[in-house]
Design a protein around this nucleic acid. Structure first.
Lengths: 209, 209
DNA sequence: TTGAATTAAACAAACGTTTGATTAATTTTT
DNA sequence: AAAAATTAATCAAACGTTTGTTTAATTCAA
């Protein structure tokens, strides 16, 4: 079974779902855009729902490895770990902006219940790991007594918000049509600097700028 | 024409769209849930799309009045204005959590192009006002030289992220099923305190805690 | 009694999916 | 190595449902 073709269908599906949503995209649209026969989607994946599951399966869970490493790591300070997490999240969102729009949709709507729970489960797991790091920083009196869960919400929420809509992002930054913020290294760096500055100011007791 | 019934349909539609998305909800589902005949939606609103437009029309734009007031106001300091904005945003999201899920979907998906642009337009306008306040604070050397646009993204992004999914929110906070975070005054206060603390630490040069 | 409100029934179009036939590639047998 | 058998990939066409919407008849209220 040709994995190239399966991957191709998944990648085209990400583009389509990101733009029109899962329910808003028909298999016929997808087949046309991917230049395959309508029957091929069901032939390869079984159903539209299962295509979606295969897509999540393949692309999600990207942070697990990184967070597992960090938990085992004793040489990095807590703030270094947080910085590292911020960098990896921004990297990931900028390298897969459309997939993350699809993920956001899935968290937002609870139409396909089991997928919804699955995606949320992944996310909650990540939250627990990051919260643990922040709590350790607080115990060590390196961090202020912040709200660990909501601090992580601010990190992810900021990135999410910026990645929600290219149009919104462009207009917010007063850019011309045609400009793609997600392909702009300067903008990526700008987001990174903002997040680090804000989170440092928020977390660190001795924050020498 | 009975506005009560129109309002009733809109309110039921918000519940339905928030859960299943616009494309994922059928007029028959909506009619059943609202206990009206299928034809009534088209009778009152003309079409499913126009029902959606009426919904946005009625419920969105809630921040305009508040931001207009703040722009004319010379007695409040910039940080007081930012605090006020944070309070109003949190208030609004907690009083209309389902509608804001629908709004987020609309920003995320660009299926109904003109509505999409309209909603984004409202949001960009708000951004400009808040950015102007932050920039003034920077000029006055009360605020640090932060990134005004992304600072606002962090405020809205944090709230958005917490309001995205009740399930996620519950699990993140280790609450039992049945707990509704959006009806919990304590959680609302907790979010408010986190946001103010973080934004103060981020913005203020002399931030005496 | 007139106009608005409500209804069940019907509409064409679009949907996800299945089918059965055909071709291409691979494996097995001779 | 050639022929036969098997499997995989692809296709156009059709399936039964569901979709948003409209119609025409009926009920209700002023």
């Amino acid at each position: 079974m040709s994995n190239d073709k399966k991957d191709h269908i998944i990648n085209v599906a990400i583009e389509l779902f990101a733009e029109k949503g899962f329910e808003g995209s028909s298999i016929r649209d997808l087949a046309a855009k991917a230049d395959v026969n309508v029957a091929m989607v069901n032939y390869y994946f079984g159903s539209k729902d299962k295509l979606f599951e295969a897509m999540i399966e393949q692309k999600a869970g990207f942070m697990r490895g990184i967070l597992d490493e960090l938990r085992a790591n004793n040489s990095l300070t807590e703030i270094q770990k947080i910085d590292h997490i911020i960098e990896k999240y921004v990297d990931r969102f900028f390298s897969q902006p459309l997939f993350h729009k699809v993920l956001q949709q899935e968290v937002l709507v609870s139409q396909r219940a089991s997928m919804h729970e699955h995606v949320i489960g992944l996310f909650v797991k990540n939250t627990e790991d990051v919260v643990a790091i922040i709590e350790k920083g607080i115990r060590k009196k390196i961090f202020r007594k912040v709200d660990p869960q909501l601090t992580f919400s601010s990190i992810v929420g900021t990135i999410n918000h910026v990645m929600m809509s290219k149009t919104m992002c462009m207009k917010m930054l007063n850019k011309d049509p045609g400009y793609d913020p997600y392909k702009d290294e300067h903008f990526k760096k700008r987001l990174l600097i903002h997040l680090k500055q804000m989170i440092h100011a928020h977390l660190l007791i001795n924050n020498d700028l």
